[in-house]
């Protein structure tokens, strides 16, 4: 029971991070039908920027809460600027091009960002400054640290803000309209280019928050961290039904839980044949299984077959 509870708690924490990143994928996909491969690198950028700024500020004696906020602000600014710039340079000119062309530019941008980060920050792992004294709470045999609780709280707050933005504001309505039908939204007076840029900005801001949280969760940041993370987050978005915001939340949480349960139980399930290093297989296997039985994801709508 303790193990189960502990794995569930771990899974939910990890899952909230996946969900945060998955939202960025799903928002862009909802509007452009584009797999934004560079999104994982934006998360990486957010992590590296926030760790660097935080390190400098803490060393300069700035109080910790203020330093955290400033680091977050810096990461959000850098990521938003990068996200919007990437959209402007690499995606907008290709909006009416063959479908795979923007996919290749996305891959190109991802390679560029990764190598740029490698040149700027070097190949070594940056460690997250120990700003919060770790404190562990025990609850029914499962343990949670204050950092983990803070991570979940910030992630939930960010996602709540996003939902408000999408459901309650003018910009959010414009986004939903553009996602439904770009041409008609344009005819209704929505400035489609601005809305798409705004979508990238919002998605990148989420990525920045996720970057900071992930760096504090693992305690390290590295130029190479974006790729696999992006892959998993994208899988989470697909699991939930890509283009669907609640779907990304559900998919992220589910993937996190599946992964940590998988890591904990895969040995028992297979009679010791497969060890915990197969946890990624577990995640992908569930993903494939879900898609076979629900081809458009858990919450995705049935879309008409159109190439």
């Amino acid at each position: 029971m303790d193990v189960l509870l502990q794995q569930l708690v771990n899974g939910l924490i990890l899952g909230s991070l996946y969900a945060l990143v998955a939202l960025g994928y799903t928002m862009v996909y909802g509007i452009l039908e584009l797999i934004n491969f560079a999104h994982g690198e934006i998360v990486m950028l957010g992590a590296l920027v926030s760790v660097t700024v935080l390190g400098v500020l803490v060393a300069a004696g700035v109080p910790v809460p203020l330093a955290l906020l400033l680091a977050l602000a810096a990461a959000v600014l850098v990521c938003m600027a990068t996200g919007v710039l990437v959209e402007r340079i690499a995606y907008r000119p290709l909006r009416n091009a063959p479908r795979l062309a923007p996919l290749i530019t996305a891959i190109g941008v991802s390679i560029v960002l990764q190598n740029l980060a490698m040149i700027l920050w070097g190949r070594q792992y940056l460690s997250f400054p120990p700003v919060l004294a770790p404190q562990v709470y025990a609850w029914h045999g499962a343990s949670v640290s204050n950092v983990q609780l803070l991570i979940v709280a910030v992630a939930a707050l960010t996602m709540g803000t996003l939902l408000l933005l999408v459901q309650r504001t003018r910009l959010g309505r414009a986004m939903r309209a553009t996602a439904q039908n770009r041409e008609v939204a344009g005819l209704m007076g929505v400035d489609v280019n601005r809305v798409i840029a705004a979508t990238f900005a919002v998605g990148s801001a989420l990525a920045a928050v996720a970057g900071l949280l992930i760096a504090s969760y693992y305690g390290i940041a590295h130029y190479n961290m974006g790729f696999l993370l992006g892959l998993k987050a994208f899988s989470a978005a697909v699991l939930g039904g890509i283009g669907n915001i609640p779907g990304a939340l559900l998919g992220g949480l589910l993937l996190g839980v599946i992964e940590s349960l998988g890591a904990g139980y895969i040995g028992d399930l297979t009679g010791g044949f497969l060890g915990s290093h197969y946890q990624d297989i577990f995640a992908f296997f569930i993903l494939i299984l879900v898609l076979i039985f629900r081809p458009s994801g858990l919450l995705g709508e049935r879309v008409a077959d159109r190439a």
Partner: peptide
């Protein structure tokens, strides 16, 4: 090297 390769990918597709 890889940075320039990425730039080349983007440029060719654009």
């Amino acid at each position: 090297r890889m940075l320039l390769f990425g730039v080349a990918l983007v440029a060719v597709m654009l």
